[in-house]
């Protein structure tokens, strides 16, 4: 069964979607990713969709869901490299994706994530559990 690889980069998990997403693949990704966030104690998730040419309402919602799930597990999500056509489709579908952070490319996405992680670290430094 095909799977989307999840790479660990320090505190960040990098997911690069290189194939056409279909519904089953999306659900597998959700399962895998949430499991990995917990296992690797990741603080950020970066989803690169620069190769994704087609998007439907299900995939659009799935991206939003992944962001919300990661948030619940204490990791920030950034979606990077969305193509113009995909962006227009999502807007026309009426999916707001307000809770998803976006960046132009992987480089900027990582920068953004690191900043966000640092900020959240600062917030928690005074707590005894923070390491």
């Amino acid at each position: 069964m095909e799977k989307i690889p999840i790479l660990k980069l320090g505190e960040i998990l990098l997911v690069s979607i290189q194939v056409d997403m279909h519904d089953r693949l999306a659900i597998t990704l959700q399962d895998d990713l949430t499991a990995r966030i917990v296992k690797d104690r990741a603080r950020g998730v970066l989803i690169d969709i620069s190769s994704l040419e087609m998007v439907d309402s299900f995939i659009g919602r799935m991206l939003g869901n992944i962001a919300a799930m990661s948030q619940a597990l204490g990791a920030q999500t950034v979606v990077v490299g969305m193509r113009p056509a995909v962006a227009i489709t999502i807007v026309e579908l009426g999916l707001s994706m307000q809770n998803v952070r976006t960046a132009l490319n992987v480089e900027r996405g990582i920068e953004m994530l690191q900043r966000a992680v640092e900020e959240s670290e600062e917030d928690t430094t005074h707590e005894p559990s923070g390491t």
Binding site: I90, M97, V100, T102
Partner: peptide, 12 residues
């Protein structure tokens, strides 16, 4: 607003 939302989705 549509244009702005689309640009935001791309990270701008």
């Amino acid at each position: 607003i549509k244009t702005v939302s689309a640009a935001r989705l791309m990270g701008a």
